[in-house]
């Protein structure tokens, strides 16, 4: 299943990820991998999750963390819990 992307929200998610991962805007792509490409660890992942929850006032179970491997995947998880419609 794929989700139609709201570019504004994707940009917001990218901004959060870039800040937490301490990388440059142009280093991240929807499919670049947080762990393999950006040296993320479990602490960075939980930070990204917490910031997303706060920004969108949504509750995302920690069990989703292993699925949130890149921006595209994060978007799909958040869209599901936040009820973003395609």
């Amino acid at each position: 299943m794929t989700t139609a992307i709201d570019q504004t929200k994707m940009d917001e998610l990218a901004e959060i990820a870039v800040e937490v991962l301490e990388i440059e805007d142009d280093e991240i792509t929807p499919t670049s991998m947080f762990v393999e490409d950006h040296d993320a660890d479990s602490l960075r992942a939980i930070e990204i999750l917490a910031r997303i929850e706060k920004k969108y006032k949504v509750d995302i179970p920690q069990a989703e963390l292993p699925n949130m491997v890149n921006l595209q995947a994060v978007y799909e998880v958040v869209a599901r819990y936040a009820g973003w419609q395609a």
Partner: peptide, 10 residues
């Protein structure tokens, strides 16, 4: 304390 998520506190 801002928020607690499982074993993580912000």
């Amino acid at each position: 304390l801002d928020s607690v998520k499982g074993e993580n506190a912000f």
